[in-house]
Design a protein around this nucleic acid. Sequence first.
DNA 1: CCTCATGCTGAATGGGCGTTCAGGATGGAC
DNA 2: GTCCATCCTGAACGCCCATTCAGCATGAGG
Lengths: 209, 209
Amino acid sequence: MAVRPRTLAAKAPEERRRRILGAAVEVLRERGYAGTRVADIADAAGTSSGLVLYHFKSLENALAQALTTVEDEFYAEFESDLASAEGALGRLRHMGELGAGAGPAVGDWALWLEIWVRALRDEGARATREALDRRWRGMLRDTIAAGVAEGVFHPDDVDDTTVRLASLMDGLAIQLALADPDMTSERMSALWLAAAAQELRTEPGMLNH
Amino acid sequence: MAVRPRTLAAKAPEERRRRILGAAVEVLRERGYAGTRVADIADAAGTSSGLVLYHFKSLENALAQALTTVEDEFYAEFESDLASAEGALGRLRHMGELGAGAGPAVGDWALWLEIWVRALRDEGARATREALDRRWRGMLRDTIAAGVAEGVFHPDDVDDTTVRLASLMDGLAIQLALADPDMTSERMSALWLAAAAQELRTEPGMLNH
DNA sequence: CCTCATGCTGAATGGGCGTTCAGGATGGAC
DNA sequence: GTCCATCCTGAACGCCCATTCAGCATGAGG
């Protein structure tokens, strides 16, 4: 009658595993990739370092999986939030606000900086981040294309505009992640939407909220 | 008759010191902040690890000084190159091209990623990078203001435009540093100048070269 | 020539930390 | 109850460096 042939011993291994992964993300945010120790993760998860290595083969692997988790959650939430937006204008506004920190992104931009540095030298990380970037740019491009179809956007060149707006968001995010006094969530969102309005030649005021 | 009261023993200590600093920069580019060892620097400089620690107090300190060196050279070259440009339009074009890798910037964007991650957790690094960013934005803002005075630029808001164009460059640079197949030096420069043309409402074609 | 401050070396030291492992506990199967 | 796969623990092991240091080299000053 067991759903799985394999029995689950101990309390709840899968639950424990997830707790460790969550702890890894937490520590990663606090100390960064280079500063995270196995013992830190174990402490944060309220378990032993032995178990961390038991569930994940190595620290390296644990951190990689932690980052994957973050990325997945990031996009999942992003996409679900976006689904509730109506029309291309609404979707674009959401993108500006979510990217600027209204959602899960807020503490995550720091992690993106870590991912970028990692991607500098790790082939796998590079490929992953490239794929994720393409996914994000794809969402942006689709939104723009939808707006063109609706007749509210009139970009010179959809691809170029997409790359510029995506890159602008990354660049603004750096200042946000580094807590530059000149940058706030609100300003970032406003700056990005203003750029979008220029790029897309929307009617004046269309993208203010 | 000695210029300095202190005698210089050995061959040329100051020269050696500079060689080590250069080696540190080289290794830093190759292996990144987290991956650089004292022995790597010593090897690259053709000396002993003892000497590295003799001239710089610690590895940490050596790397910090190496980064400072890079930053100084970066801006020095940037400013001198810029001085030769005529008019606001010429200066802006230079900024687009230098930033995109025509000059010393090309291998340095990777180092900027490292600096950003470092700034995430090191107060000193954060302050340094903020100051440097302000300096770069200041140059950009001055150029824009000059263009306004010349009557060739007509931005909505000089400050906002400055921040957007500076951030856009950072964002584009990430893809360049990570060798994203969709991004090249030429495309980056073209994308940035096109954005500048939009932001500054230049006459059509003014910023093409 | 001496002397001695400064440069310089490479082996030794010591600490930090990833990984391993021997040994328990747990709980389903029978 | 007995057995065994699976979980889990924390101490022990070793490796990898940063840093220290004892000692040699050099060359200016006298």
